[in-house]
Write a protein that binds this DNA or RNA. Sequence first.
DNA 1: CTGGGGTACGTGAACGTTCACGGTATAATA
DNA 2: TATTATACCGTGAACGTTCACGTACCCCAG
Lengths: 354, 354
Amino acid sequence: MRARPNPPARPVGIKDIARALGVSTGTVDRALHDKPGINAGTRQRVLDKAAALGYRPNLAARHLKSRTSIRVAVHLPEEIALFWDSLRDGIREAAAPFAPTLSVEFRNNPRLGEGEVELFEKALASGVNGLIVAPGDPAALEPLSRRAAATRVPIVCVVTDAPTCERLTSVSADPFTVGAVAGELLSRFLPGRGEIAFFTGWLGTEDHAEKLRGFEASLEAEARRADLVSVVEAHDDEQAGYRRALTALDAHPELKGIYVSTVNSLPVLRALERRGRLGKISVVTTDLFPALVPHIRAGHVAATIYQRPVSQGRQALAALYRFLADGTRPPKRIKLIPHVVMRSNLDQLLGRMG
Amino acid sequence: MRARPNPPARPVGIKDIARALGVSTGTVDRALHDKPGINAGTRQRVLDKAAALGYRPNLAARHLKSRTSIRVAVHLPEEIALFWDSLRDGIREAAAPFAPTLSVEFRNNPRLGEGEVELFEKALASGVNGLIVAPGDPAALEPLSRRAAATRVPIVCVVTDAPTCERLTSVSADPFTVGAVAGELLSRFLPGRGEIAFFTGWLGTEDHAEKLRGFEASLEAEARRADLVSVVEAHDDEQAGYRRALTALDAHPELKGIYVSTVNSLPVLRALERRGRLGKISVVTTDLFPALVPHIRAGHVAATIYQRPVSQGRQALAALYRFLADGTRPPKRIKLIPHVVMRSNLDQLLGRMG
DNA sequence: CTGGGGTACGTGAACGTTCACGGTATAATA
DNA sequence: TATTATACCGTGAACGTTCACGTACCCCAG
């Protein structure tokens, strides 16, 4: 009844096409790869016949030929090792099946945004074929990305997007969804109505603005069970974030919930502790790092929205490799569904970052 | 300063080993693959030299030779198309890079547990090299799995485990964590204390018992904010489930939360509707299928624990392939972290089942 | 001494694709 | 007409690995 979608017949190769048309394999090769030196008519005949026979290129044979392996450089910070190492693991994992056709070179900068320009220039000079970066300072990277585009070196952004850069794609947790999930969780965690606050990094970044939009959309959808009374820009300066958090807490003694949309949630937690309100306020944070773990265990942080670095790494490398190998372009943006990490799944997540 | 972990040197191949030792490539091949017809001494010399030079086999070349491609059969039900199709997509996606060395044949049985034995026998008879199955009736599959093991045909279980079967590994959402997440969510969703109920499939299955354990562990950790007052075995008969749900609802007029740990949550929802208690009770369900979507949108289902079929498929095929290709054994059990699906991330999940 | 059987190893042809090179037409120029 | 240029296409060698086959050698029975 059901059409058999898998004819386990002998796979048809380039030679089969050549024999069927009475041409040589060289001609078929030229036709299939848009190379010069072939009549437009025969090219079309080859393409038609290839489609008719259901030709699928043998990736193994193709890669066998290319002695000069594809080189991709990966530029990531060292700062939050647990997070970035997971990302690297994902990249390594995805790259493994293609060795040694594909070789991945990891280069680190100390912190997000520090020294990334130098790494970028060095990579371009060394003649890599592709690049995976976590853009800390998109503005500084923009001219470099144009130079890369000029030499046909594709770039994949991970974790955060740099929409103004010339990039092949970006892989990240969808910020709107991240904010929306945080908003829904916070709404539901409140017993009845209550005031909540939103702590962000710098709203200039498109990502953070999107998170806020998603957050507000969820509050709306949840019938305004929660009132957003404060949006605090914490920047990424620890001291400033701490002081602003204190100010916000004092200004809103009835606060029942907090979402920290930036990775820098520790200053807010310290402020909560200082004011003796840990555990009395539902806190949702972003990402996961060692210092956050005890807070989750203790219940001071109800949930954290995790950006799934392993999957990001896997998908980033897969997209980049497919483009370098086949020329197939990925969607402009690859959005992952973020994980909700709570006390109950924390251990499993720490065990194997999946 | 930092040790360069990637020497972009020319990859060392089987010929390099042969030349270094003054033997032929055939001898190196025999040594590396435990084949007969080689002196134990030279085998060791080859292995040592291979390790010293850092030999990594070129997968492309290896697969090129094997004209007889590896055949794996995938046996999945048709029943809940949205779920099983996602699983199939994950398998296809993971298999794509290895075509045509690896050919995947999909066979369907109408519902979970129906006709799986026949499919299994047919697959063994047809001489497949590996099998991916969702065991509906582990007891019936057990003797077959031994026959498969006797002929060295590895089996990978997905979605649910069959620990008594001879299987290479199983890929599934960790049931303890699934239950624990549900328990934590439900605890936090309740405004203050409250009674909750646990609806399961048949507790005989190891998976469901594990879910209950995880669920109870979470209630304990959440300081008993919620009281588990009822554990209902709904079986998978729609009518029986519906009647039992009605009974449970009537017996507990103060019920504030429900977790349905089996995929069959619709009878429970119908019972809730019948008694006019939809929306008054926090409901957490399992998995995702079209009929559940409007309930999530309406807020009648606060969250559903999603088993991530795409990832399951990907990982199942990857593990099976690695074993068939390299002989590397995966861990006995591969546990995925389940997704928490709510209104806020439902759309993204429906869009691209990631 | 011959021969048969075993062990240990070398040899070379494939696998499907790519690419540089060479060849053969036809067209343009001297 | 002879020469050169151009467009198109065929040829064959590689890529790294595997496998069937061939060969050299040693041991021992006939």
